[in-house]
Design a protein around this nucleic acid. Structure first.
Length: 114
DNA sequence: GGTCTGACTAGGT
DNA sequence: AACCTAGCCAGAC
């Protein structure tokens, strides 16, 4: 698994937690989204939603559809690198995900229900 | 070890 | 529905 190393959000290289997170994200179908908390729970890391965010931040792997992970409000979370926010939106729209006028996704319509 | 930070969340106002 | 707060946890220094 390739990663980009970005302090202070470096992945814990000695654990497999991030690999489990990536596995879950890879399972999200095209055109659907999941929340950080949902991914954490499915990865066996219930309550570690922030870890999911860090894992995705550290990610540098085209295999992982990171754009399908959004926050509990159905919006794209702000991050240290603001450039990827509009990119995420475009990628999701290309998959058929619809944003409302406030830039939010209807989780009742697009949330992945595994 | 204490402190600070961050792609988070749930609950109260 | 928007805003605020406390709780959360692993890493870096």
């Amino acid at each position: 698994m390739s990663r980009r190393v970005v302090s202070p959000l470096d992945p814990p290289k000695g654990t497999d937690a991030y690999e489990r997170i990536y596995d879950v994200v890879r399972a999200i179908p095209e055109g659907r989204v999941a929340t950080y908390g949902q991914v954490a729970a499915l990865a066996g890391l219930k309550g570690h939603a922030r870890q999911v965010g860090y894992a995705l931040h550290a990610l540098d792997d085209d295999d992982v559809p990171w754009q399908r992970v959004v926050n509990a409000k159905g919006e794209i979370s702000a991050r240290s690198d603001p450039g990827s926010e509009p990119l995420q939106r475009v990628m999701l729209e290309d998959e058929g995900v619809v944003f409302d006028e406030r830039g939010r996704i209807s989780l009742s319509r697009f949330r992945w229900d595994p």
